[in-house]
Design a protein around this nucleic acid. Sequence first.
DNA 1: CTGAAAGCGCTTACAG
DNA 2: CTGAAAGCGCTTACAG
Lengths: 342, 342
Amino acid sequence: MKRPTIADIAKRAGVSKGAVSYALNGHAGVSDSTRQRILAIAEEIGWSPNTAARALSGSVAYAVGLPLCRPARTLGSEPFFMELVSGLESELSTQSYALTMQVVADVKAEIALYRRWWAERRVDGVILVDLHVDDPRVPVVEELRLPAVVVGDPRGVGGLAGVWSDDAGALAETVEYLVALGHHRIARVTGLPDLLHTRIRDDAFTDICRRRGLVEATIHPADYTGEESSRITRRMLSSRCRPTAVVYDNDIMAVAGLAVAQEMGIRVPTDLSIIAWDDSSLCQLVHPSLTAVSRDIARYGAHAAQQLLAAIAGHRIENFQDVTPRLTPRGSTAPPHQKDDS
Amino acid sequence: MKRPTIADIAKRAGVSKGAVSYALNGHAGVSDSTRQRILAIAEEIGWSPNTAARALSGSVAYAVGLPLCRPARTLGSEPFFMELVSGLESELSTQSYALTMQVVADVKAEIALYRRWWAERRVDGVILVDLHVDDPRVPVVEELRLPAVVVGDPRGVGGLAGVWSDDAGALAETVEYLVALGHHRIARVTGLPDLLHTRIRDDAFTDICRRRGLVEATIHPADYTGEESSRITRRMLSSRCRPTAVVYDNDIMAVAGLAVAQEMGIRVPTDLSIIAWDDSSLCQLVHPSLTAVSRDIARYGAHAAQQLLAAIAGHRIENFQDVTPRLTPRGSTAPPHQKDDS
DNA sequence: CTGAAAGCGCTTACAG
DNA sequence: CTGAAAGCGCTTACAG
């Protein structure tokens, strides 16, 4: 039951272990015929590299780390992470890199995790998500000189490289669309306010609303959960001068908002238009189906992995802009029923 | 920038590397005072073990593997995996075990992955999910003598240990509840028919329906997606003698079914009762909120991790039955509006 | 182009 | 209770 090692191959082939290593790794130093013979033997006896030995001598872990800084329930209901993971994985597996995930309680624990991973040589690089404004993780990762890619906007990534998309542009397009439909009273229900991308979308929203003269536009900070969205939507729709369109920062909140509207007898889209950010299959399951800002998260993941592998290989990497999220109109948006009197 | 090793500690403490190793691992072989001194020095110079070195000499990888055998979109929309991952992680991290995930295309690829992981000594054990009837993965993992825990029913786990819950009992309870409400025409829309737990729930459904004399009960094979559920539900609700209650095998399908009913002008719960299996936050977001069969998936994960760590430590492990999923009645179930004429 | 050897940082029998 | 040494399976200068 003992696994074959390069020593076994060397013995069989009648060469040194070094030669086997060179042959197996495609390095110069062995003749073509020897290389072929070695490869054939390795294949035949079912050899595969012992990762630990490789890691110990080559100081490469062949693994990449992704900390998960959210509670179990949120992780489960947010399609984001799993789609990101699939995308990361699709690239990493082509190079036999493993993806190591670990749940952490907060940013402090996440920082400790980076230090530990680095100290243990557990990972060759890391993926950072959910960047905060002035995120303390960035300087730590830089200081450790740990190869890293941020899935997020270049603003705030410091010296690290970000894989990002133009959220601001997508949000502007969304508001323009609502304006074109005739909406003036537009509300935005946000994700966690501390997150950098929330800030960026807030700014974009404020900016476009000012440019279009939408003086009644409002921003409502929330936290991605359906509960909070329900609460906020209920209050919003109960107000004297309720919005005719709401843009939610994820699909869960949009679905919750839709449910509140239905519960209050407010017709969607006749009385209220709803738009979701992130277009999981959920958006097409509810009735009416939700107009959504779509993006290919798995693809972000794939790009992030490519960048990270390049960084690990010693290349300098730059920010990478992925395609801009695009608006996918469905049944939840329409011109407002009553003319705005603003 | 070089990381401290046990050799550094040994030099500082004036002892051998062996002594340091014993002290650090809590083994006998060093005096208490020496141990304290060594621990203090390790702490002071910020030592942490090099995982690769540990793995190479101790032949322990300090990692556990979880293959993901579903496409990206499904992974994203199914809360199951992420909740399972959080649960696994919560236990693994207490023992500094990492969780390694890899996406695979099919069962064949998954089997190859087990062989590779084992050959590379990448993981010390694995978690199997989504067991099929006569699952070919089981004999392979057994043959490799790879410590493993199946998240699933003991039937079909062969010599492996399963962490499971009484799905059959939960399903029977669900049907009994519907019968008590006065339903006779009950339909079940299933997950993938090849999965073992689908089969088990099917059998339980058939059994309880026969015992209760529900001759018009029907089973409709589906695949967990909203699309398929919509199609099936639409056909079902268009039939002459449509069911008055439908039990779906996950929450996504239940939400899709609800949307179809609404689109067809069929009132829920007045004209149709709907029950979801698995109770993610989704069930409380839609209107009406969905009656659901709830279970704590993160907890399954935690238990599975505990079992697996025990197996890795060399203990014999047995099947572990977790709490039975429980019915959580909400707004989507009620007595049928019209008396059944059956 | 090839071989012999040192070394990566640990663990663990084996002597004292 | 403690120390010196071998070994885990690779990679990589360094000589030939």
